[in-house]
């Protein structure tokens, strides 16, 4: 169930990041949208992690190196352009992944078939904002380009083969590139040209190697449960 753990961690960690926008997004509708997307991801995480153990123990009591999420999911939210760029990269990936996973008929297929429809809304949301910011003002264009460029080196990791998944992840990479390039093109943005991996990342998040920011994310996410074990409201 290494695959369920990895995908569940992606969803959990990104949900936590998106939750940071609550009360802080540029407009009220985006507060609601980003936290709705976070809630969808949390639902996926609960289902996936429950396949591999106790969801609360897995979320609140594991150490940094025991998480198997990709580094893209854990990076700080940055500005709204950074969040939009990550949502674009991640939701296009997740939609392709879940569509393929739903066809495998394996243990993760029911969740994938259910979630792919929800993720279509996430992708659509990210796409609309990419178009609006990329093809917007000079300033929004500049920041959106900076964001897609800055996150590009974390995208290669999404397509590392995952044991037991039953989906050819490297095979999805060209389709992902095509779809992302299409959106970026329509948004008058340039497709980043640099390497899609950080040179020092080894196997990166899937091997439990995480960025510095991840420790602080876990501190916030796990504090309450560790300070007051079993707390509920």
């Amino acid at each position: 169930m290494a695959a369920a753990r990895a995908l569940g961690d992606d969803a959990l960690v990104l949900a936590q990041r998106l939750g940071e926008w609550a009360g802080d997004a540029p407009v009220l509708e985006e507060d609601v949208a980003l936290t709705n997307i976070a809630l969808d991801l949390l639902g996926q995480a609960r289902t996936l992690l429950s396949l591999t153990g106790d969801e609360d123990e897995l979320a609140f009591l594991r150490e940094e190196h025991e998480f198997r999420n990709v580094q893209l999911a854990e990076l700080p939210i940055g500005d709204f352009a950074d969040t939009t760029a990550r949502q674009l990269y991640f939701s296009v990936y997740q939609e392709l992944l879940y569509a393929a996973l739903a066809d495998t008929g394996g243990a993760l297929a029911p969740l994938a078939a259910k979630a792919v429809v929800e993720v279509a809304y996430h992708r659509d949301h990210a796409e609309q904002w990419t178009l609006r910011l990329g093809d917007g003002t000079e300033e929004s264009h500049r920041r959106m380009q900076r964001a897609v460029d800055g996150l590009w080196r974390y995208t290669g990791e999404l397509f590392e083969p995952l044991d037991g998944l039953g989906v050819d992840l490297p095979g999805l990479h060209p389709v992902w590139r095509e779809r992302v390039a299409d959106v970026l093109g329509r948004a008058t943005l340039t497709v980043p040209g640099g390497p899609d991996r950080t040179p020092w990342a080894a196997g990166a998040g899937r091997q439990g190697v995480h960025t510095e920011a991840f420790g602080r994310l876990l501190a916030e996410m796990q504090y309450l449960h560790r300070a007051h074990p079993g707390a509920s409201w």
């Binding site: 509708e29 985006e30 609601v32 949208a33 709705n36 997307i37 809630l39 969808d40 809304y121 949301h125």
Partner: peptide, 13 residues
């Protein structure tokens, strides 16, 4: 459409 996401997950505004 004002927003694809509304008061609950299943609704748009």
């Amino acid at each position: 459409l004002l927003s694809r996401f509304s008061s609950t997950a299943c609704k748009a505004l």
